Amino acid sequence: MTAPGPDDEQTPTTAPAPRSRNKLRRRINAMTSLTLALLVVGALYMAFAPQPQSASGQPDDAAMTAQGQQLYTNTCITCHGSNLQGVTDRGPSLIGVGDAAVYFQVGTGRMPMAAQTAQAPRKPPLPQFDPNTPEGQSNLAALGAYVQANGGGPRTPAGPDTSLRGDDPARGGQLFRLNCASCHNFTGVGGALSSGKYAPPLNQASNREIYTALLSGPQNMPRFSEQQLTPAEKKDIIAYIESVADGDNNPGGSRLGGIGPTSEGIVAFVVGMAALIGFAMWLGAKS
């Protein structure tokens, strides 16, 4: 055997340098292309995406909230405080009451109150908040937007007033008797409560006013969430109230003043007692 010569020695093998550089270059190019593609997609989305809207379907306009703050400062700040926190012996906090409470209280003239009484009565609203005028509708929406921006709360439903009337007044009558008749009477004529408060008659209220009252719970009235009364059930109650106010539905039979079965019971009692007394007198005379 012969010893290996210099030419027979094996040299260590290494990966070709050009191949490694090409692989690194391809990775850098792929990352650069992906980054540019993401930037282009983001720019296109920002250019063509629709503007965000609020829950009420109107653009979330900071100018409307600012207008509402100015209206609040002019008409509400004395009783409800500079930060809606309320003022002792003047007015409660408005944080979290929502836009629905603003529509009901201000749109019906209950606020601002003329005097500190047990209950705020319905009266003509301030001209700038009259819901029957375009200016009043705009100002009510602005004031509601400002209150809504400070704590959230129930919102006034969108759409025309007629869209808040349900299709089943019979079911609405059942729900009304279960949830409302104890205060508002069977036909919505209202009634007295304790401590100088009262349940007002409902024949003067619009569909939107009734709906926002159900949402916000003014005075002694409780709030009815969607778990207690669904939107469809609230609308059916409004359909029942509207039918009674129009005279289309007399749940107590003859109206007799429009206060439901109570009046019929009184008539039956008086007539029955008179008949019994007359019969007793006839028996006495005969004996």
Rank of each mutant, 00 (worst) to 15 (best):
P4C: 06
G5P: 01
D7P: 00
D8S: 05
E9W: 12
P16E: 14
P16G: 11
A17N: 10
S20T: 15
R21W: 10
L24Y: 13
T35M: 09
L36G: 04
L36H: 01
A37D: 03
A37T: 04
L38Q: 04
V40A: 15
V40L: 15
V40E: 04
Y45T: 04
Y45W: 14
M46Y: 12
A49C: 07
S54L: 06
S56F: 10
G57L: 00
G57V: 08
M64V: 15
M64S: 12
T65W: 02
Y72G: 00
T73S: 11
T73Q: 13
C76W: 05
C76R: 01
I77D: 14
I77G: 12
I77Y: 12
C79F: 09
H80I: 13
H80K: 11
H80G: 12
S82K: 13
V87F: 09
R90K: 14
R90N: 10
R90L: 14
L94Y: 03
G98A: 01
A100K: 00
A100E: 00
A101N: 05
Q105E: 14
G107M: 06
G109F: 07
G109H: 03
G109S: 04
P112V: 15
P112C: 12
Q116A: 15
P121Y: 01
R122H: 08
R122G: 12
K123C: 06
K123Q: 15
P127L: 02
P127I: 08
E135V: 10
E135S: 08
S138F: 13
A142L: 02
A142I: 08
L143V: 13
Y146V: 03
V147F: 11
Q148H: 05
A149W: 06
G153C: 01
P154A: 11
P154G: 11
P154M: 09
A158M: 09
P160N: 03
L164F: 03
R165K: 12
G166K: 05
G166H: 09
D167P: 02
P169V: 03
R171W: 08
G173W: 11
G173L: 09
L175G: 10
C180P: 07
C180T: 10
S182E: 12
C183E: 07
H184L: 00
F186R: 07
V189W: 08
G191M: 06
S194L: 11
S195F: 13
K197S: 11
Y198D: 01
P200G: 00
L202M: 12
N203M: 04
Q204P: 01
S206P: 09
E209M: 07
Y211W: 07
L215I: 05
G217A: 03
N220G: 05
M221P: 08
P222Q: 05
R223E: 13
Q227M: 07
Q227F: 06
Q228E: 08
P231N: 01
K235S: 15
I238G: 06
I238E: 04
A239I: 10
E242V: 14
S243M: 09
A245D: 10
N249H: 04
P251M: 09
G252S: 14
G253E: 11
L256I: 13
L256F: 14
G257S: 09
G258Q: 03
G258M: 02
G260W: 02
T262D: 11
E264K: 07
I266L: 14
F269I: 13
V270D: 00
M273P: 00
A274Q: 05
A275P: 02
G278I: 10
F279V: 13
A280W: 02
A280P: 02
M281L: 15
L283C: 06
A285D: 08
